[in-house]
Design a protein around this nucleic acid. Structure first.
Lengths: 128, 128
DNA sequence: ATACGCATTGGAGTAAACTCCAATGTTTTA
DNA sequence: TAAAACATTGGAGTTTACTCCAATGCGTAT
């Protein structure tokens, strides 16, 4: 699969895809090039790119994303380093979840307050 | 409360606090200055800064943070604009929560796999 | 009175993460 | 066969969000 298609599927620009390769976030070796030197993306890489997109949406930096993606190769890894990576990230993620849940309640609360006041006004706008 | 104390309480650098003021994320009017022209931060602003810190950790940009903070003044606002802001953010947040929960399960899974293999090895490292 | 620690401003510099450009090559379409 | 549409590289430029610096002023401690 060549770069344009990957760009469309992942939502990353072609430049961004090349950038991620440059910084080593994704790896395309000699075999990942066609005869004419065009990049040829595998399903694995596509999957990885979707993960990257997701992590980024959580507010992780690319460096942190790289850490988290090590989990992909977890079966080949030795235990101490895995725990060293997983534990802090897990803590981080659990904090984010509870914080987000609080924010969520706040937003729902805000919606309720508002709906009570002016649902008709809003309906009008929606139906026009 | 002057800038140094706020900096220590919020974890934002003094420069960052001035920066947030410059871009309008927090507002200190004439009254928020002491005689000698020093900034004088109120409890409201401190609270707002904690919210900003939290939003940022979710991966929201400062522009998005600003949108979300409008909710602070929600009682003074008219309904359509509130729903216009709240609804998309709520959707975003709920997506993030479920995605994070999935990631969380994955990490716990990874930990389990690992612990089974090499808990003793790890214990050794910890106790040394 | 002078030094030290705090504050102020404006403006330049930096890091991360792209984004764009120019020169060039390849493959497909008219 | 020429143009269009894709690809390549290296390098410069941009955006966001700070971060640092220099010049200066205020307030307290010695």
């Amino acid at each position: 699969m060549q770069i344009k298609e990957v760009s469309e599927k992942t939502g990353f620009s072609k430049d961004t895809l090349r950038w991620y390769e440059k910084i080593g976030l994704i790896k395309l070796d000699r075999k990942s090039r066609t005869e004419n030197n065009y990049r040829n993306y595998s399903q694995q890489i596509l999957k990885r790119l979707f993960l990257i997109r997701q992590m980024k949406s959580f507010g992780f930096s690319l460096d942190e994303v790289e850490d988290l993606l090590v989990l992909e190769e977890i079966n080949e890894m030795n235990c101490p380093s895995v725990l060293g990576i997983v534990e802090p990230k897990l803590k981080m993620i659990e904090e984010k979840i509870t914080d987000l849940q609080n924010l969520r309640s706040k937003l729902i609360e805000a919606k309720k307050k508002c709906s009570g006041n002016c649902i008709e006004l809003f309906e009008e706008k929606v139906n026009s």
